[in-house]
Amino acid sequence: MNDTAFEAMRRAVVDGDADAAAAAASAAIAAGIPPLVAIDEGFMPGMKEVGAGFAAGDLFLPDMMLAARAMQRALNVLEPELQKAAVERAVAGRVVIGTVAGDIHEIGKNLVGMLLSTSGFEVHDLGVNVSPERFVAAVQEHRADIVGLSALLTTTMTGQRTIIAALQAAGLRPPVKVMVGGAPVTGAWASEIGADGYSEDAMGAVELAKRLVGAGEAAR
């Protein structure tokens, strides 16, 4: 019987149907399915399926974004139940993400944020044109493990260096890891400015974030 419920959850995410995802989440609560089980066995498999389809070139950015949005809607419904039950969803890591000052491009950043969020990270998206001070404040406020810095322009990517310096000055480095991304960013640039990693694409960013969190834990 739960199999039918899980299938509805998976389907809602794969279809990118946010209303159906919310309904499936509510139905899970009504049926007494523990929220964590609904997430892990219902919604996450759908997200993984979409991610695999995207990586294989069978699915596209809109499929991915709609799936992530559906997943988010389901999580919103389930979140109060988790709190009621005093269960904390195991968070893979806390990420603060944003596009650097002077730059208003956010497609890549949004995609990375969505994917991190649906992969179990707690994501705080600061939006675009974010100043170094706001990054530092957000990292402190949310006790972030990782900061993700996006820049699309060669003229704004130098802002990534400024933010790393600001994190350093605030005494947050090295425990807080920095990942950088954006069209002009390279591995060489990431090393040059002292970032902990960069990824070519959004899927790779999730893998990178998992690695960085693992490395952080090992160091502690």
Binding site: G16, F60, L61, P62, D63, M65, L66, R69, E106, I107, N110, L111, G127, A183, E200
Partner: peptide, 29 residues
């Protein structure tokens, strides 16, 4: 916030609007 990618219309319409070339056409970074 330019959330066009998340619009159901985007998914519904992009295949009709855009030609998806094979990998013979290089659009990689």
């Amino acid at each position: 916030e330019a959330r066009f990618l998340e619009q159901p219309e985007t998914r519904r319409l992009f295949r009709g609007e855009q030609l998806l070339p094979s990998p013979v056409i290089d659009r990689a970074s």
